[in-house]
Design a protein around this nucleic acid. Structure first.
Lengths: 221, 221
DNA sequence: CTTGACGTAGAACGGATGTTCGGCTATCAT
DNA sequence: ATGATAGCCGAACATCCGTTCTACGTCAAG
């Protein structure tokens, strides 16, 4: 039967590694690269399993040929794509963090491209440019790009998420890790900088405006 | 000029041969196969023209890598704008920043995908994962991914570049902006955190190990 | 003519690479 | 027990391969 004999886990790994390698580098790997990448202990093991995989018709080989391992199926459903995230505004401490409205998303005159693998779903994604040094305590620099995901309801934010928070009483925006206290009346806001102490705010005085998914800093050159 | 200079006929043949070869065999040819297939008289000729083609941005090469000739338009058929950067190690303060050797690049079991628009050329790119809080003063957190570019010679680093520096006298690694003093004997190292003062080191006591191109922080979710 | 840039040849070097072989362990039917 | 089979490991080997170096030739600019 064709399908019954389960492929040994190690051979799965080999197949998977070759797949990834070809995808990423545009050419097949060498025996030794397979050895390392798939966690084999010696090249003879690779030879051994490659023979088995060839017999199982899962790949073909050019004998005595470097990088002569060709996968039988070139199919590669995983879409490693680029997402264009609109930069809808800037974060400054003194104003609420902008959230994207229809207009902003409709006319993204400025976008940042990120690999889909970095952010997963595109749903509700937008980006903000940080202005000023006010986010230093979140280890975010002037000029950094923060990739955010829209928060529809407060429950979208889980304990420990890094979120953009506007503090009504102080009239300032900040990026902090958010933890709900047990009584639900206070929020603990924890700076990213581990040398700084967390502090507490009244939950009604804090507006959570979005979750931070990713920070990207392009170093000036 | 970009478009005007006509490609020498021989380089056309090389390109054409590589195209056909990849099409038919599913992997790039070796230098010697190109030599025969495109009718070159020696391997050094192939080397020579390949260099020219690479400069013309018509193909890219993995150096010292068998069959390491990748046509630019074949390289990533679906995701031409995503680059897979191998994560070759970790930065810790107490050790020199790793630089990619052949082995590390050969086994990219761990990569980070970035949009090409973020980093420009792929040449010499590699990534490191930051371990520990030692890079806090460069506004880089535990777990951040730093995308680096290999430094072949110290002159690759220009004043103001953010670089990975290993301080021999203190036996520690750090990320700082590097400025050469006029007399060439000292380096000014400037932390990213604007609240911190720059300091000076003997140029001979500082090994520059790579330039930081980009910092990526995936916020835990 | 000289010079320098460009293209060409041939050969050699050092490292990478696929292959093979002897030996090892464990499982299992004989 | 015994042998067979499958899986595994390490080392060695002959070859392959990318690179580099020297030398030669051509041709246009100075």
């Amino acid at each position: 039967m064709a399908t019954t004999s389960a492929l040994p886990e190690i051979q799965m790994r080999i197949l998977d590694f070759i797949n990834r390698y070809v995808e990423e580098r545009g050419m097949p790997p060498t025996i030794r690269e397979i050895q390392q990448g798939a966690g084999l202990s010696s090249t003879s093991m690779v030879s051994y399993h490659l023979r088995a995989l060839e017999k199982a018709n899962l790949l073909s080989r050019y004998e005595r040929c470097s990088r002569g391992v060709i996968l039988q199926h070139t199919a590669r459903p995983q879409s490693a794509d680029v997402i264009a995230v609109p930069i809808v505004g800037q974060i400054v401490a003194s104003k609420p963090v902008p959230t994207p409205d229809a207009d902003a998303l409709a006319a993204p005159d400025n976008v940042i491209h990120v690999a889909r693998s970095l952010v997963g779903s595109t749903k509700g994604l937008y980006a903000l440019e940080v202005r000023g040094d006010s986010m230093i305590d979140a280890l975010i620099n002037d000029g950094d790009i923060v990739i955010m995901r829209k928060v529809e309801s407060p429950t979208d934010i889980k304990n420990g998420d890094l979120a953009a928070v506007f503090l009504l009483d102080r009239n300032e925006s900040t990026l902090k890790r958010v933890y709900r206290e047990a009584d639900g009346r206070r929020l603990k806001l924890k700076p990213e900088n581990p040398t700084m102490k967390p502090f507490y705010v009244d939950a009604r005085q804090a507006m959570i405006l979005g979750r931070v998914e990713c920070v990207i800093r392009r170093v000036a050159q």
